[in-house]
Every structure is written in C-alpha cells, then in structure tokens.
Write a protein that binds this DNA or RNA. Sequence first.
DNA 1: CGTCAGATTGATATTCATCAAGATCGGTGG
DNA 2: CCACCGATCTTGATGAATATCAATCTGACG
Lengths: 249, 249
Amino acid sequence: MNETRDDHVIAVEALLRYLQCRDRVSTAERELVASLTMRFKTFRRGEDLVSENSRPNESCLVLSGFTGREVLLKDGSRQITAIHIPGDFVDLHALLLKLMDHSVVALTEAHAAYVPHAELVRISEAAPHLSRLFWLSTVVDGAIQRAWIACIGRRKPLHHLGHLICELSMRLNAVGLAPRHSFDFPITQSQLADVLGMSLVQVNRTLQALRRTGLIDWKGSTITIHDFDALAELSDFDPTYLNLMNEPR
Amino acid sequence: MNETRDDHVIAVEALLRYLQCRDRVSTAERELVASLTMRFKTFRRGEDLVSENSRPNESCLVLSGFTGREVLLKDGSRQITAIHIPGDFVDLHALLLKLMDHSVVALTEAHAAYVPHAELVRISEAAPHLSRLFWLSTVVDGAIQRAWIACIGRRKPLHHLGHLICELSMRLNAVGLAPRHSFDFPITQSQLADVLGMSLVQVNRTLQALRRTGLIDWKGSTITIHDFDALAELSDFDPTYLNLMNEPR
DNA sequence: CGTCAGATTGATATTCATCAAGATCGGTGG
DNA sequence: CCACCGATCTTGATGAATATCAATCTGACG
C-alpha cells in the first residue's frame, strides 16, 4: 500500500502546515500527528464528504480540491456557508456537536483523509497543546463565517467577490498553494452563486465587472491577482480574521 | 460587597444553565465553575463590552440584556453577526485567537461578568471535560453563524425574521428566559436591520407582514409567539443546529 | 406643550432575480 | 475530421424586490 503511505505523508504535512501557520508545533507534537491512523477517499464534484444528520466518529481532512458546507432550504435553494481548502478539517466540530446539521460536499474533484475521533482524542490527551490547536481550527472557521455574514449582509456584489478572492488567495498561500497570488479554482459560476448568495446571472456580471477593474485575471479555472493590495483595498479586506499570525496559543 | 456576591451567584447559574442544556455537569465541575473569580460591569445600549483590535485577557459572560458582535465596514454600514443572550460567553474564542477582529456591543442595557483567562485555564486543566464544554460553546456559536449565513443569503425576509424569532425563543427558553414562547426583546428596528442585513424600511414592512400572519405578537418590546410550530414551519426552522440536546460530549 | 427617538408610510430609483435565447467549449462517436 | 451534445458561460429583456429619500405619526418624558 504505497499509495496509502504517500497519502498519509500528504495528510500529515497538510495538517502541520495549517497548524504551523498559527503556532509553533514541537517535534513531539509533530510525531504525534504523524502517528494518526487514517483512511483515504476520493470524491467527484457534488459528492458528500460528510452527510447531514449523520453522527461521524471520524473527522475529515481535505487533501486536495475544494469542498463546501452546504445548507439546503426547503424551497430547493442552497447556500454554501464555508469553503474548505487542503489542510482544513471540515467537521472537527462534530467531535463535540455529534450530529451534523449540514453536509460537506465536494465543490471540485477532491481527496480527503478520515481520522477516527478516538485517535484525535488520544493525541489531544498526550499533548494538550494540540487539543488547543484543534479548538483553534474550529474557532478560525467561526471567524471566517463572521466575515462571510458581513459580506453577504452588507457588501456590494463586487466587493463581496473581491473579498472572497482575497481570502482564498491568502488561505491558499499560507499552505503553499497560491504562489504569487495565483491559484487554481475550478468552480462553476452556479456554485459561486450559492457561495455568494446571489443569482447565477448576477455572479456572471459581477465577475465581468471585476475583470474590467484589471485587478485580476480569471481564465479557465485559474485566478491571478495582479495587484493584491489594490484588490484588498477595493474589497475592504482585512486579513486579521484569518488569524494567520504565528503566536503562542 | 453583597451586590458582587449576588452577581457571582447569577453568573455561575447562568453559565451552568447554558452548559447543562447540552451535557451533564458533575458536582465537582459545578464547584470549579463556582470557584471562578470575576468582575462585573454594566453597559448602556451601544457601549462596547469588548473592543475590536483589543487583546483580551479575560472573557465576557452576559448576565442580562442582549449583546451583539458588530462588524463595521469602511462605507459606514454595519452588520451584526451574532446576538448573545444571558449565559453566553461572547468572546471565549479570544482565548485562542488573541486579537479581536470585531467588537461586541450592548444592543440593550446589559450586565456582564469578566472572567480572567488564567482562571478559565485553571479550571479547564482541573477538569478537561469543562474544557470540552468551553470548546463546545464556541462551536455552537459557529453553528448558529452558519444558520445565519443561510438566512441572509437565501431566505426571504419574512422567513428570515421568523427564523430569528424562533431561534431566540428557543435559546432563551433553554436558559429559562422565554416561558411559553414569550420574551422581552427591547431592540430597535434599525438595530434589527443590521442583524438581518436589510434596510430599516424593509424591516418595518417585514415586521408588519409577520404580524399579519397572526403567528406572533410584538408589542413594545415583548414578543409572544402564538403558534411556535407554525412559525417554525413557515420559517423553515430546524433547531438541530442549536445543539440543545443533552448528551455526553 | 415641545422635544426627541423610534415607528410608519408613500414615492421613486436602483438593484437584483428570473426568464429566455444564444454563444462557447470540450468531449464523443461516426 | 466533423457533426453533435451537454455543460457552462454570456447577453438582453422584464418585472419584482429592495434601498433610499422624505415626510408624517406616535409615545415617552421633561
């Protein structure tokens, strides 16, 4: 099972990258993370990584691709409440909440690792500081959600979209996936509409308006930000909420 | 300082009520909570309980009144991203995030207790299960935020408002503050607009539409839900996300 | 009685969702 | 190689939803 072995290395590195953006991780802690047992799974666009109303006994770590939390409404519409990138735990909160109140779906092809809760508890108890870092991860998620509420509620479509792109670029860059503010984002405009809480047509036109500013390039599935600072200024983007500062937690 | 002694009792009870809705709290744990030292403070509408960009070394527990997380945009508009009720810790996440990326303001007259982080760490270490319950509290906050994103992004104003009222009623009821789905909510329509992400006029008209359904009564600052199930049905409200089930966490 | 904050109302302009129709593109099978 | 197909993107037209502006009304209170 060399493939599984590779996956394991990838998973450990992805998780460590995430944590090390925010705090120092000791050698002993790194070894504990490396000792996690996990299983791996590949998903096609639209498939559930975690299903609503399930009671997971393992938590899911994204290794590649983009996934999103999906809330479905009775009128058939849907809202994506979070986008997860490689290195993110998508349902660590289920460790405490027990019952999933939403699904996590693949927005693109995706690859993920599942870690048994018992394993997470084991290494948390061996290193309480790791436990704090897992908590941190759910709390950063919350901070991002607050930023999204403000975006949907009060920002103009152009600024909302710009804000999202700044956020994704910074998060991806932190784990080494967006060098020079350029990254791959193979998402449909229709999916984007469910992220931004707009209609498909509105997304299309907003995207054109954003292109016309000349601040970004979005060809095919590749986004390139030409002038990050100007885009951040335009979109009123302040990265504080991402908590990408490395400090003792 | 009998007044402070009373406040202390109120704070301990409020916090325990919150926790006991979600999990069993042992006698030893209750005593640990009761051993917390804290200071108390009263706020008038609009005052900050916790300020943006501060680095709190204590966390703030609401004892009475309503408070909200406030995000201010550069264009002068504002979005409230959460409403906190008595028994809620409003900035427990600052224990890990360190730097506040938003303020917490009093939406009404409010009374709050501040607990030093060192104290929270002390009782967390004495009882790891309490630590999990603190984590739980931040994670429930996140679940509520997800529901809000879906509401702002995809629900019609009438349903959004109905959903909010259902949520508040259930949360208040859980801590004994909304008997028979009736509670006091002394908030301004303008504040409500910043909660719902609508304009003031829109709020006013939506409120009238909701009154016309006959499902609720909102006179002065008192909301009475006449038919909770019907309101929940109308608003597509599913309380799962509030995690008000008592189970081992 | 005057004042003020908040609630309500009507009129208007703007934004946005929706509907419907192409255009584009990549892949597939003949 | 080409015709075709489905998915996605793009565009224009239309009406509904919503923000904004500007009064007016109401009730609490000095």
